[in-house]
Design a binder for these strands. Structure first.
Lengths: 277, 277
DNA sequence: TTGCTCCTCACGTCACGTGAGGTGGC
DNA sequence: TTGCTCCTCACGTCACGTGAGGTGGC
């Protein structure tokens, strides 16, 4: 019989850990002095403790270990648990590797050109019903008037969703599509289409503040990030107007309008996937 | 200006997170209504929030992020921080990979032969001063008498340390070394040596309970584990008697003596290193 | 009797999620 | 006035480390 710290030393644990395992019912002392409350352990308990520590090394929680030890050592239960754990660990590992490569890519960028002030984030995106109009990509396109018309139509049906307007750059057809989010389907009208912006599992996003003349810098930063982090584009570039100006009085949800060009906020989005191919 | 949940939706965060960042001073709302306490955010705060989220994705804690944001965007500080983070993440990644391969090896063993009941753990070991005697590895060696003599000598000098006795198998010289731990150096005597069992950074250990006739099973399990997990031996095998029997009355620290052979507890230890070469 | 070890609370860790209970805004 | 959103606590998470304050054992 060993006192708690002696036993802890033998098993390279700590008295606190042993008390914790006692409390959780994972490993009860083989004897407890009724008057002093002293815990006494026997070497016969070492194998159990070793199992606990081994499972812990494999990333199991004490709760999971307790479940395994409670059952009379069922091999199939153990197999299942460990198989599930492998999947967990693989997922986790992948996440960590992406973290690491993200930090490395960032360091690379910092060393080469200093901090450009653009943060690129990757996130999934849900599908969204939109009302849009396609325009040819010329220098004279009047996005303002287009958005005004779209907003007026949405307002008439009270179908405007609380989300910012955007344009999609369809490079293949050399078209620009201006669109605003809808809460529900509305009847077709001439020149406009109701469509669903599809859900994407990975969208690389960057936020640009200020006038549109500096937007190309943000685009460059976004494309560089995509390249440096081993992704490739799998969709069209989108410009989302989180805060925009308007010269005409227009019906948009509260909060989206900016009064000066320095208050403009635009998000560039690009659907991407892993791999260079 | 956006209300908190509107702003949360725009930035794919949650109201709770924004309140948390406010509390930590990471991102204060640009306006707080004095009467209602309502927080209001502007799109101009989105870039800051993006930075916070990006740093978080890279594994920085909110505290570290706060430090970075507090300084006027010092590039060198950022560089240092990220370089340190790369080291952290690499270490962490390595640990996870070892966890994963440990679980896989365990699964492999389970599938092939069921659970043998042996838990192998890897741990570092500190150096320990020992009193030992080397014996030829023959069938008639009397370890009991050898340990009795060692214990008597240590007891005479009151130098016995609280740790179990062990034997080291010196395969190269075909010798067995019986040894007990000492608290301090004692004078040499004939036939015995005081020596230091060196510190090891990685020792694979397995605990066996019961009679010594089944010890080879434990040895097999240990060697299989070492092989399956991609390690190789870099030292001699040791048998540590955590609980042992004695036919003669002998002076050993409390708790080490077993009364029946089923109470015997023995740990096998093998110093190892990564790599098959 | 003096140290040493043990005991039982109980806080702190990290970044929030999740109610509870109450009030402002349209 | 009724929902809806907001507010401020405050607990819970996970596996202990780390005192605080007090008592048994050699």
């Amino acid at each position: 019989m060993f006192r708690i710290s002696e036993f802890a030393r033998l098993s390279r644990t700590s008295a606190r850990m042993l008390r914790h395992y006692d409390e959780l019912g994972l490993l009860k002392p083989s004897f407890v002095d009724p008057s002093s409350g002293y815990r006494f352990y026997s070497t016969a308990q070492l194998p159990t403790l070793q199992r606990i520590l081994a499972f812990q090394d494999m990333g199991l929680s004490l709760f999971e270990i307790a479940q395994l030890l409670a059952q009379p050592l069922s091999n199939t239960a153990l197999l299942q648990k460990l198989e599930a754990k492998v999947v967990d660990l693989e997922r986790d590992l992948e996440r960590r590797q992406m973290q690491l490569s993200a930090v490395r890519a960032r360091l690379e960028g910092l060393r080469r050109s200093g901090d450009e002030g653009y943060e690129v984030v990757l996130r999934p995106q849900r599908a969204q019903l939109m009302l849009g109009r396609r325009l040819e990509f010329t220098d004279e396109l009047d996005l303002g008037a287009t958005f005004d018309a779209l907003e007026a139509l949405a307002a008439k049906h009270e179908a405007r969703a609380f989300a910012p307007p955007l344009v999609v750059y369809h490079d293949e057809t050399r078209e620009v599509e201006a669109a605003i989010p809808l809460r529900f389907q509305i009847p077709d009208s001439s020149g406009v289409v109701v469509f669903t912006l599809p859900a994407e599992s990975n969208v690389a996003c960057v936020i640009h503040t200020g006038g549109y003349d500096a937007l190309p810098n943000a685009t460059t930063a976004l494309l560089e990030w995509v390249d440096r982090n081993g992704y490739r584009a799998v969709g069209s570039l989108r410009e989302v107007y989180l805060r925009f100006g308007s010269s005409t009085p227009v019906q948009v949800p509260t909060g989206f309008l900016a009064s000066t060009s320095s208050e403009l906020v635009t998000e560039l989005q690009l659907p991407v996937a892993k791999g260079r191919d």
